[in-house]
């Protein structure tokens, strides 16, 4: 087994995960680069009986989260942390946005913890158990975040059959 070869095969998936997490191609690739560097140095910590992708996602996710924490300490707020204020959260999507842009922008509006769970489960097809390990919370917490995220996306995008211009009452 060659760790570097296996890592190379995972690069497209790391890029997809990072793109969905950040919503920004340049930021996402910086994140993947950091992840690759850290993974190479920490490769001895990888347990080969576990899927490599889940381990790499853990590394990437932790770099991302510590970056977000830094931003918060610096007073930069990128996402709204609390869904309970619909005035702030549910900005109507722009008219003419394609469904896919709507999906990306709705995802971007989710609180961080919900977004990462949604991405890992729905986009990356990770099991609840793997998501719990990657995000460092119990499976029950994963499920409740998932449920909130699904509810919020439904509010933000609707059923997707028509451009969603639903406003909050």
């Amino acid at each position: 087994m060659n760790f570097r070869t296996d890592l190379t095969a995972e690069l497209p998936y790391l890029r997809r995960f990072a793109r969905a997490l950040t919503g920004d191609p340049a930021l996402a690739d910086d994140l993947v680069q950091d992840c690759v560097e850290r993974a190479l140095v920490k490769s001895h910590l990888y347990d080969p009986t576990r899927p490599l992708r889940a381990w790499l996602y853990t590394v990437l996710r932790n770099i991302h989260v510590s970056g977000l924490r830094r931003e918060r300490r610096a007073g930069i707020v990128k996402t709204v942390d609390d869904l309970s204020d619909p005035e702030v959260m549910l900005k109507p999507t722009q008219e003419g946005e394609t469904l896919l842009l709507q999906v990306a922008s709705a995802l971007d509006r989710l609180p961080d913890q919900q977004r990462e769970v949604m991405i890992l489960v729905a986009l990356e097809d990770m099991s609840y158990r793997d998501v719990a390990e990657i995000t460092g919370v119990p499976v029950g917490t994963v499920m409740s975040r998932l449920s909130r995220a699904r509810g919020a996306l439904r509010e933000l995008i609707g059923e997707g059959a028509k451009p969603s211009l639903r406003r909050v009452k």
Binding site: P12, D29, Q33, V36, V103, A104, R150
Partner: peptide, 28 residues
């Protein structure tokens, strides 16, 4: 929920087919 899943994949799966940028290959 399954529809949401499909949308997410439709939105981000194209990343899988993009060439990996040189900076990342260099890091490797």
């Amino acid at each position: 929920w399954r529809r949401q899943k499909a949308w997410l994949k439709e939105a981000f799966d194209p990343v899988l087919d993009e060439p990996v940028p040189a900076q990342i290959k260099a890091a490797l």
